[in-house]
Computed example of a mutant assay.
Amino acid sequence: MINNLTNFMFLMILMLGSIISISSNSWLGAWMGLEINLLSFIPLLTNLKNLTSTESSLKYFIVQALASTTLLFVVLLLSFNQNFPLEYNSYLNIILNSALLMKMGAAPFHSWFPEVMEGLSWTMSFILMTWQKIAPMILISYCLFHQFIFFVIIISILIGSIGGFNQTNLRSLMAYSSINHLGWMLSSLFISMTFWLIYFLFYSILSLSIIYTFFQLNIFYFSQIFSSLNNSPIMKFSLFCNFLSLGGLPPFTGFLPKWIIIQSLGMTNMALITMMVILTLITLFFYIRLTYSAFMINSTQISWNKLWVSNFSNLTILLNFLSLFGLIIISFLYLIL
């Protein structure tokens, strides 16, 4: 009871830190909010009974402290900067963007992200993939350096696509998927914050639908999926279709935010959106390969596992329904209204 109350308090402080960072009218206040967020997230990651989570929390702290130090250094330089040349300001802007990109785990500052994810629980992994990206992403929209972010978008989608190959650890796979989606989120900032918010909400729902299933089954590797879901073909079908939805394959819900970005960004930057779509097809390739092998290969069934697997909550069913049929529902509502 005490541990649950303590975790809840740290979670509230974590959210408060992000809100302070977003609503601040100065870079120093934004830095302070990020530090509050960091210092409240570390106790949530640390689990004295699990050495891997302790190692992950230490790695996360070192990387975030480095990014925070860089951010504070650049902010102080900018505050003293009155008569510096324009080229100097550009370099400082690139360093400022790099510090924020390191905080959210975007490529090429991504190497810590999969390693940290490997040692976390599914609950902490979901927070790291979603909420912890809100404050850096909004802050980076204030100082968007288009030429540099253009490079980061391409590298993030490429690394996120290639990194997912031959991954047997589900947390690593979700980490590389998050890096891939970061590229799409950064591209949505070229249009407006509204498009970023739409994409982020859809990404959070899709990630929650997959991670909540993993959390219920307590699985962390692909081999466990086949042994746990062989007696439940419907849930097996739903889970792998959720992967396809996360990859952005139509007619699943995950295609809708990508469709919006493609339609809007294609009017202004056709070269960028073409490269993004081509690189994202790599992600779809290994998702389809995994799905094909899961659906087509015969496997043994375990009789004692049947009742436990079939006892899924209503939240799981709702999330799977939204992930699989959200695009059809939204299209139908659009035609009616």
Rank of each mutant, 00 (worst) to 15 (best):
G254N: 01
S26E: 07
R289M: 07
C143S: 12
P85L: 08
I138S: 09
I94W: 07
I22N: 04
N169C: 09
N180K: 02
F148D: 00
A175V: 05
I329V: 14
L249T: 00
N89M: 14
S172M: 07
N242E: 08
G160T: 03
S24E: 11
M12W: 06
F41C: 04
N269I: 11
I225H: 05
M174A: 15
Q167S: 12
N311G: 14
L44A: 05
F222C: 14
G163R: 00
F243E: 01
G248C: 10
Y334N: 10
F10I: 09
I336S: 05
M117V: 02
M185L: 09
T54D: 11
M275P: 00
L322K: 02
L318W: 07
S57G: 09
F10G: 14
Q132T: 06
P85C: 05
N37A: 14
N320L: 11
N180L: 13
M1P: 12
P250E: 06
T70H: 12
F126S: 10
F332K: 12
V309A: 09
S26G: 12
S209E: 00
L76H: 11
P108M: 02
F312H: 11
G163Q: 05
L86D: 12
N314T: 08
P108Y: 01
I210H: 01
L335F: 08
L139H: 05
L14I: 00
G160A: 05
L48G: 06
R171N: 10
S111M: 15
N314R: 06
G266V: 11
S56D: 00
G164M: 02
A294I: 10
N218K: 11
E35P: 13
W196Q: 10
I134R: 03
I154A: 06
I155S: 13
L335P: 00
T280E: 00
L128S: 05
P250W: 09
I149L: 02
Q167C: 11
L337T: 13
S209G: 09
L290C: 05
N89I: 06
W122D: 09
F84C: 11
P108I: 01
Y199S: 07
A135Q: 07
P251D: 04
F243T: 01
I179H: 08
N230A: 15
S141A: 13
P250H: 04
L265R: 10
S40G: 07
W31G: 07
G247Y: 01
N269W: 08
G247R: 00
W112D: 03
G266W: 04
Q216K: 15
F255W: 03
P85G: 08
I138H: 04
E87G: 13
L256S: 07
I36F: 05
S57I: 05
G183R: 01
W259N: 10
S53Q: 03
